[in-house]
């Protein structure tokens, strides 16, 4: 027992030599160990603060740092290259980001199309064997360009082409047009991704633009008069472009949202069918009255005629009316009737 007491005494003496690491506080501190942050909501000792400000603040900071470090020393430690490191928990304090959360890169028009159709990218080999030149030619780069020149040292003039036309110049022109078209598409994709409104290119060369583009151009151009195209003549069988209300002057866009649910769609369609089947003719009272009066008058006049001269007319009742020129069915000359001159 003596030994135990001695050891206890020794340890007590040893502990006395060092200052304590415990701190008393009225309100507990809030910690965010991930940020190495401690928040002390206790009130200041105003008397001490005014008398010896800096010493008081030093003591306060010491106590709070001690409390914070006590918490940190409790965390699980690890040994990394002869240094003891402590693993910090995730940050509790929410701080604003520097830039917004990255969005997935919007697909280009082609990528969208390929995705819809399930077209997958095929990997092309970087070199391919050229039968004509008998050597390996790269897919792109200056060696490819050189090979192309070597291959196309002569070009065939198509049968229907102007014989004096420079086929080489035409080829270069076509290539540059393809390049600029691709560039335009790239920029259009960027604009779409950034939601920038891009002015329309308008109608380009009729060789390049499609029938749809031309139709759009015609429709818009026709509506672009002072009277919004009201007095413009129409060609036979001319069709107006659709979906151009946004750029056509005077046109208003009618948008109807698609029905939300299946049942709603069904009821809407049924309503349409019913409205058609239950259609009642419109009653035009004026017309109806006029017709009625006329038929009455006719009857009266007929009665008078029949009572006046009973047997003189051998015309049938159906032919009572005076035939009008060019109207009605013709029965040929055998049917008799009025003599025509």
């Amino acid at each position: 027992m003596d030994v135990v007491n001695k050891i206890l005494e020794n340890s007590a003496l040893e502990a006395e030599k060092f200052k304590s690491i415990s701190v008393e506080k009225n309100l507990e501190l809030e910690y965010d160990l991930g940020t190495l942050l401690a928040i002390d909501n206790n009130d200041f000792d105003l008397k001490l603060l005014s008398q010896r400000k800096n010493d008081y603040l030093l003591d306060l900071a010491r106590d709070n740092t001690q409390l914070l470090l006590n918490q940190i020393w409790e965390l699980p430690t690890e040994r990394v290259e002869e240094a003891i490191v402590v693993k910090l928990p995730p940050q509790k304090t929410v701080l604003p980001r520097m830039k917004p959360v990255p969005r997935p890169r919007p697909l280009t028009k082609w990528q969208q199309f390929a995705k819809e159709k399930g077209i997958q990218k095929k990997k092309k080999s970087k070199l391919s064997w050229d039968e004509q030149l008998k050597k390996w030619v790269p897919l792109y780069g200056f060696k490819k360009a050189k090979a192309e020149i070597e291959k196309d040292w002569v070009l065939e003039v198509p049968g229907n082409a102007d014989p004096m036309e420079d086929q080489f110049a035409k080829k270069i022109q076509a290539k540059s047009e393809r390049v600029s078209k691709n560039e335009l598409q790239r920029l259009r994709n960027i604009a779409k991704a950034k939601k920038v409104k891009v002015p329309r290119v308008g109608v380009m060369n009729p060789d390049v633009s499609s029938a749809k583009d031309l139709q759009t151009a015609v429709t818009v151009a026709k509506a672009s008069t002072a009277s919004l195209g009201k007095f413009q003549d129409k060609l036979p069988k001319e069709k107006e472009a659709r979906g151009v209300a946004a750029i056509t002057p005077g046109a208003s866009r009618k948008r109807k949202m698609p029905p939300v649910s299946g049942t709603q769609e069904k009821s809407e369609n049924l309503a349409i069918v019913e409205s058609i089947l239950n259609k009642k003719p419109k009653l035009n009272i004026e017309k109806a009255v006029a017709r009625h009066i006329r038929s009455e008058e006719q009857e009266q006049s007929q009665e008078k005629q029949t009572s006046g001269r009973k047997s003189s007319n051998n015309r049938g009742k159906a032919n009572a009316k005076k035939p009008k020129g060019g109207k009605g069915q013709r029965k040929g000359k055998s049917g008799g009737g009025r003599k025509r001159r």
Binding site: T35, L36, L37, A38, I39, D40, N41, N42, D43, F44, L57, L60, A61, N64, T65, L68, L69
Partner: peptide, 12 residues
């Protein structure tokens, strides 16, 4: 990386 201390009830 420093330790940060916020003292005083006024901060909240």
């Amino acid at each position: 990386k420093p330790c940060l201390l916020f003292n005083g009830a006024l901060w909240e």
